[in-house]
């Protein structure tokens, strides 16, 4: 499953500067189909900025982000695509899961409409089909099917987050970006969500870039790990290697700071 020949996402020397302030600097990595890359670091380390720039949301100050599109092969997201193409990509092949589910959902329409929106956006015009599809997704994310017509405001935080994931995955994207998807959730709710994510990654062959400050989440979900500090990537490698044999002082600090339960 991991042995495709071509990279799915190629990030080359990406920097995002806000005037003189460094968001992130000189970040490079490749991502293959089916791989999960974790980005860890404290608040202010630049991980969210990096995530936004590689997910076609903000243009980097320098460097390039290349994505392997379904039809046209490798394309630079910013120099070889215009805004309509990027927006279409963001609605179909790419997905972005926000830390706060309210940022990624329409709170004033039903769960079914939330899941169905991307389908309707790409031209699905059969109400019955849309509804069936949405029901199946509720099953996959372990929400009772008869909540289909309820508003997300009536859902718990964990349910909202799962709904956000379903809303994103309904168009079978190949690459999912997640910004602290378990932040703000209870520990037991986190466990359920993480397990769901693991299963979906496996079953759908997704590639994922997940930003988190929680090393346990990184250990559970990601194959590879990048540690960021002050906008720089200070260490990167296989997750188990970075967590078991950290080289950089900051990585060692992070790992040694975890409380054992």
């Amino acid at each position: 499953m991991l042995s495709q020949k071509e990279t799915l996402l190629s990030v080359n020397n990406v920097s995002v500067l806000y005037g003189e302030r460094v968001g992130c600097q000189n970040v490079s990595f490749d991502l293959w189909p089916g791989e999960v890359l974790g980005i860890v670091g404290e608040s202010g380390s630049g991980k969210s900025t990096l995530l936004n720039s590689i997910s076609a949301r903000i243009q980097p100050t320098s460097g390039s982000v290349t994505y392997n599109t379904r039809v046209d092969g490798q394309r630079d997201l910013y120099t070889e695509m215009n805004e309509p193409e990027r927006r279409l990509l963001m609605r179909t092949d790419l997905a972005y899961v926000h830390q706060n589910p309210r940022d990624g959902l329409r709170m004033n329409v039903s769960a079914g409409a939330n899941i169905g929106e991307r389908l309707m956006a790409i031209g699905e015009r059969h109400y019955g089909n849309i509804r069936n599809n949405a029901e199946q997704w509720l099953d996959k994310i372990e929400i009772d099917q008869n909540r289909l017509d309820d508003l997300p405001t009536t859902f718990s935080g964990g349910m909202q987050q799962r709904l956000q994931i379903a809303r994103n995955l309904v168009t079978r994207p190949r690459l999912v970006f997640m910004d602290e998807p378990t932040g703000g959730l209870d520990v037991s709710v986190q466990a359920r969500l993480l397990d769901l994510l693991r299963g979906l990654v496996r079953d759908l062959g997704l590639s994922v870039v997940i930003v988190t400050h929680d090393l346990a989440v990184a250990r559970l979900l990601s194959h590879r790990l990048m540690v960021m500090q002050n906008g720089q990537v200070v260490e990167s490698g296989l997750t188990d290697q970075v967590l078991d044999d950290p080289q950089h002082p900051y990585s060692q600090l992070l790992v040694s700071s975890i409380l054992q339960t």
Partner: peptide, 12 residues
């Protein structure tokens, strides 16, 4: 080796 290669080696 790159992490990608190592993952491959561990798989197979």
């Amino acid at each position: 080796a790159s992490p990608h290669q190592i993952l491959n080696i561990r798989e197979k």
